[in-house]
């Protein structure tokens, strides 16, 4: 770890230093600083900011402070009652110790587990633009089959963000005096030719809240995560489904997939394939096919395409049973 300047901010205004990295739970930042992957000169601790509350939003939705810990959010009564997909996603992630530290804002921006990104002895277009991508012909079992480019196929690791994608969460961010709202789907950038640029936030811009819109009455939601072992592993494939069914017909569907793409993957193709259709296995299968259409496998991760389809079919089956 390199030497760095450390300050603590007590107000949001004081925290907004464009030359600093924000330290919340530290579960990604500190980890990567130890590996020399992140080498900030200044770190500002934002844990004292008043952003750790979950409140009712005016539209009937939920307003979640950026510093709400994953473990607290997972068991919040409103989340459990109205946004089960989010609670399930949170509880499927990491370990209890990590969830006790990790925050809502930090989780959205957590960095990939790509082996080559995490080792500075390798080239990496995310770390050093233009240096190359050793994952392309390396061991790429955990890498993305959707959203990748020839420059980067690193998987976005978050479970929480996948659930929030299906909940159409909105991110509230502050920079200087400006506060803006960003639809979660628009927060993330595909790697394209600039995999080092992972989101639209500017230097010194801080996520302050995430809001979840109120769901239509009768909506049910579920998160299903598939992986090698039962706990403490990133998803090989996961599915977040938020659906309302009436008279055996799917009125509304919001679908997101995790573990298979370079960002939390909202699948409007799957949604379109489901809405207005009957809740049948055949239609679920068609939605899964639509979701994974155009997936590009690498040497070791072809199985993820089929696995993601099965995750989605099962999640839909459970929700509409």
């Amino acid at each position: 770890m390199r030497a760095f300047q450390f300050t603590q901010a007590k107000t949001v205004d004081a925290a907004l230093d464009p030359g600093s990295r924000f330290l919340a739970g530290g579960t990604t930042l500190i980890d990567l600083m130890k590996l020399d992957v992140e080498t900030p000169e200044r770190v500002v601790d934002i844990n004292l900011l008043p952003l750790a509350r979950v409140e009712a939003a005016p539209d009937g939705g939920l307003k979640i402070g950026a510093l709400v810990r994953n473990s607290d959010l997972a068991v919040h009564p409103e989340v459990k009652a109205r946004y089960a997909v989010l609670s399930e996603a949170l509880l499927s992630g990491a370990s209890p110790q990590l969830r006790n530290m990790a925050t809502t804002g930090g989780n959205l921006l957590q960095r990939t587990r790509c082996y080559y990104f995490r080792d500075t002895a390798y080239a990496c277009n995310k770390r050093q633009p233009g240096s190359g991508c050793p994952a392309m012909d390396g061991y790429n079992r955990i890498h993305a089959v959707l959203g990748g480019s020839e420059h980067c196929v690193a998987t976005h690791p978050s479970d929480m963000a996948v659930a929030m994608m299906a909940l159409e969460a909105v991110v509230h961010a502050r920079k200087d005096k400006r506060e803006r709202r960003i639809a979660l789907d628009e927060l993330y950038l595909l790697p394209g030719t600039t995999p080092d640029k992972e989101n639209v936030l500017e230097p010194g811009e801080l996520i302050t809240y995430v809001t979840l819109p109120k769901l239509p009455a009768g909506t049910k939601s579920h998160y299903l995560k598939l992986r090698d072992r039962a706990q403490y592993e990133f998803a090989l494939a996961s599915a977040a489904v938020v659906v309302s069914v009436s008279g055996g017909r799917i009125e509304r569907a919001r679908i997101a997939l995790g573990g298979i793409a370079t960002k939390p993957w909202r699948s409007r193709e799957a949604e379109a394939a489901l809405e207005g259709k009957s809740a049948s296995e055949e239609n679920f299968r068609a939605a899964a096919e639509a979701a994974m259409h155009g997936a590009k496998p690498l040497r070791d991760n072809k199985f993820k395409i089929e696995l993601a389809k099965r995750a989605l079919v099962r999640a839909l089956t459970v929700m509409t049973a």
């Binding site: 390396g138 061991y139 072992r229 039962a230 706990q231």
Partner: peptide, 15 residues
Amino acid sequence: VNNNYADYLVATNAD
């Protein structure tokens, strides 16, 4: 490449 406890998988209690 998987030289750590997160990427080298051993059985957890849940397994």
